[in-house]
Amino acid sequence: METTHFSSSLLEDKNEADASIQNKETTYFYRKKVDGANQETERNKGEASKIEVRGLNLKIKNKVILNDINVKIPRNKITIILGPSGCGKTTLMKSMNRLTELYPEMNVKGEIFIDGEEILNSRRDVTEIRKQMGLLSQRPYPLPMSIYKNVAYGLKISGRLKKRFLDKRVEHYLRQASLWNEVKDRLRDPASGLSIGQQQRLCLARGLAVDPDIILADEPTSALDPISSQEIEKKFVELKNNYTIVMVTHILRQAARIADYVVFMYLGEVIEQGPANEFFNNPKTEITKAYLKGSIN
């Protein structure tokens, strides 16, 4: 799976690589990433799950929001965190890239491992950790700049880059988010002028541009019209070959459509988790059965 992607990207980038033999930066990245890739595959062989949450507790004042969460999220699959609204799905997801730090009232305890590395209490710079994960929020938040700069933003903060190289990258990620054809003639226009569905795809492109391994999506379709929602879903199914996707939703049908793995939450606890087939066809707990029947909302 990885190899296919590898070669296809090589092909796509052949001209670029040829043209920029002089471009030390590019070659540097090229070489480094190949080395890094080997290392990563080495290291990951032993790990079955991409993200592992162990004993996560989260309180706001004395109110328990998340109670002893243990979750294993499989690599390169779409994992759906499912549950009625207000059960802590979003909070669980936000603790995965430590955005909970923006909410001082939240008291987080526990461990989260990504590729076997603990991140919640890690001394590593939090910006580096967050770069491993792209975020799609309930409604799109494009940055207040042009479409082009939105995508280039993540690339730029990682280092100074040549314009031509940047152009290629921006185009590539916009294509990945199937937005290129719609915006190629107005890259310099403000992102605020896009429709809300386009904005959400722009946010996806922007997130992909930081080159994460994981995409976190918090009800990414809740503000969108049905057609845009479908596009996002389709995109996720395409992307799951190369990314680990975690998506929060309370729409059962959406979960059934795209999930590979389901984590079902209710009132701040994980009730059940497992492969989607098993979850939908053979639920184990009474609560899950009730939820699937629609009697809990």
Binding site: F6, F29, K33, G36, A37, T41, K131, D211
Partner: peptide
């Protein structure tokens, strides 16, 4: 996943 384009220079 492993991407060629990653620019993860620290």
């Amino acid at each position: 996943m492993i991407s060629l384009f990653s620019i993860q220079r620290m």
